[in-house]
């Protein structure tokens, strides 16, 4: 479903030095995968995840989502692709503070023009899986960190995207909340067959993932 072919990405530092952030990356991510991209800090995990998520451009190579090469898309097309095919979970929960939990979860579905009834049903369904169905009317500021991150996950998966990308989703959580969140995401992956790719160096995330892609200095050193 996601295919990376000889992807290269360079960063040009202020010092004039060029850093090879992604060095000839080729990968296949199949439907329903529960994978993690891991490695030491600065190895290129987030850069790779951003490239797959059409947030960042690469210097060469192809990134196919389905049959579409996203490196050829303009900004508006990339935005549409992100809206329709990809769900994002970030390290900071990044919920919309003025909307309730229920509205945050249904946000992307609303942007995509789903019917009110469908949104309400789907929000309830996802909230039950992530065990936040009793907090639907609450505002984000009334939730704990763990709960907020589960709302962020619910928002990412509610519209049933082809791919969910989670960048260090447990980084701001304590171990208990991290485990809880990962179990929920695993359940989602099993129940809904959602393809989830993490970028994380959290041992628990790595341990729970079915596939570990290890990066070092922009290379895939183990898959």
């Amino acid at each position: 479903m996601v295919q990376l072919k000889q992807v290269h990405k360079y960063f040009h530092k202020d010092t004039g030095k060029e850093v090879h952030a992604l060095d000839n990356i080729s990968l296949d991510i199949e439907d329903g995968e529960f994978s993690v991209i891991t490695g030491t800090s600065g190895c290129g995990k987030t850069t790779l995840l951003n490239a797959i998520g059409a947030l960042d451009r690469v210097d060469s190579g192809e990134i196919l989502i389905g049959t579409e090469d996203i490196t050829m898309l303009d900004e508006a097309q990339r935005s549409t692709l992100r809206l329709e095919k990809i769900g994002f979970v970030f390290q900071a929960y990044n919920l919309i503070p003025v909307l309730s939990v229920e509205e945050n979860i249904g946000f992307i579905m609303r942007l995509r023009g789903f019917d009110d009834k469908v949104i309400a049903q789907r929000v309830k369904e996802v909230a039950q899986i992530l065990e936040i169905d009793n907090r639907l009317k609450a505002m984000p500021t009334q939730l704990s960190g763990g709960q907020q991150q589960r709302v962020a996950v619910a928002r990412a998966v509610a519209a049933k995207p082809a791919l969910v990308l989670a960048d260090e989703p447990t980084a701001n959580l304590d171990s208990k909340n991290s485990e809880h969140l990962m179990k929920m995401m695993k359940s989602l992956n099993e129940i809904e067959k959602t393809t989830i790719v993490f970028a994380s160096h959290d041992d628990y995330v790595v341990e729970l993932s079915r596939r570990q892609i290890i990066l070092s200095d922009g290379h895939v050193v183990s898959d």
Binding site: G53, L55, E75, A76, S79, T80, L81, R82, L83, E84, I86, G87, F88, F90, N94, I96, P97, F107, I108, L111, R155, A156
Partner: peptide, 16 residues
């Protein structure tokens, strides 16, 4: 700005 950036990232069109 941070909120708008996140909204852009998750696919909210700029025109919105």
């Amino acid at each position: 700005l941070r909120e708008f950036g996140i909204l852009l990232a998750i696919g909210q069109p700029y025109r919105n």
